[in-house]
């Protein structure tokens, strides 16, 4: 069983919705990313998403675009991010790590090499935003060989027929895109998301995590009851952008995650059992 699957099972039996924070790898620097990953866990993260910076992040809003630019300016490369995960793993063998990025980084490295290096570093899953299942054949073969989960997106406008095709090849969890738009958009409708998640559950037994547009503890709490996981990205990345040079950035980030965790736990009915 993969670390991701294991973690969702543990959350489910604890009656808890998984909290999945996203940070852009290498922002403000690769060294700092290791500390920030530990801070996310200290704040209550169940799974960590690390963005692999790309020069042209088409699916991201301005906050994560800026983070990509900062990370690249700091000299971040996939090789350095693999090193970041290796170092994170020295102190944390349990928290699943998902790399989220764009196809061209994998194309440039070669799918086989990227997957092999990611798996060896301790990465558990890959979410490649612009690589839908139809284009992911080569990646899927490699990921399966190396035991990496390939995570796919389900959008509000994804048809049921297509959802079935996506779920047939998806692993780890399904990432439900909560709104039509880019990351960090701001017009989330919890009622509609609930329907979307229900539709996904009719098609798959995979855990469903909701992201795009979760910008504060209130919106995380609103989504927590209907999903297996809530993904929070731009809100945290904005904080890193504003306080990147602050010596207490890890503590600030930990506290922000803790606030999300607390708000989510207050609305989920299961509680600790």
């Amino acid at each position: 069983m993969s670390r991701i699957t294991e973690r969702f099972r543990a959350c489910r039996s604890a009656g808890r919705t998984a909290l999945i924070p996203y940070i852009t790898g290498g922002d403000p620097s690769p060294e700092e990313t290791v500390r920030l990953m530990h801070a996310l866990v200290a704040g209550g993260a169940d799974i960590i998403e690390v963005g692999v910076p790309f020069s042209d992040p088409m699916a991201d809003g301005p906050v994560i675009q800026a983070a990509c630019a900062r990370a690249l300016a700091a000299g971040t490369t996939p090789a350095r991010l693999f090193e970041v995960v290796r170092r994170f793993r020295e102190d944390d063998p349990d928290t699943p790590v998902v790399f989220m990025g764009y196809a061209n980084i994998l194309e440039a490295a070669g799918y086989a090499a990227f997957v092999r290096d990611a798996a060896a570093a301790g990465v558990d899953g890959l979410l490649t935003v612009d690589l839908p299942p139809e284009e992911a054949g080569e990646l899927a073969d490699e990921a399966q060989a190396q035991g990496l989960d390939l995570i796919y997106l389900a959008a509000p406008n994804t048809s049921t027929a297509r959802l079935e095709r996506v779920c047939a090849v998806a692993g780890g969890f399904l990432y439900a895109v909560a709104l039509k738009g880019v990351t960090g958009s701001a017009d989330l409708d919890a009622g509609r998301v609930e329907q979307q998640v229900a539709g996904i559950r009719r098609v798959t037994d995979l855990p469903v995590a909701v992201g795009f547009g979760v910008r504060d503890p209130q919106s995380a709490a609103a989504l927590a009851p209907c999903a297996d996981g809530v993904i929070v990205g731009s809100a945290l990345v904005r904080m890193i952008g504003e306080h990147g040079a602050a010596p207490d950035l890890p503590e600030r980030l930990r506290d922000a995650v803790r606030a999300l965790r607390r708000a989510m736990d207050e609305t989920t009915t299961g509680g600790d059992s």
Binding site: M58, A59, A103, V129, D130, L131, P132, E134, E135, Y152, L153, A154, A155, P156, N157, T158, S159, R162, V166, V177, K180, G181
Partner: peptide
């Protein structure tokens, strides 16, 4: 090909 995020596939 069609290398896009899921929201654009439809």
């Amino acid at each position: 090909g069609r290398f896009v995020s899921e929201t654009l596939v439809g």
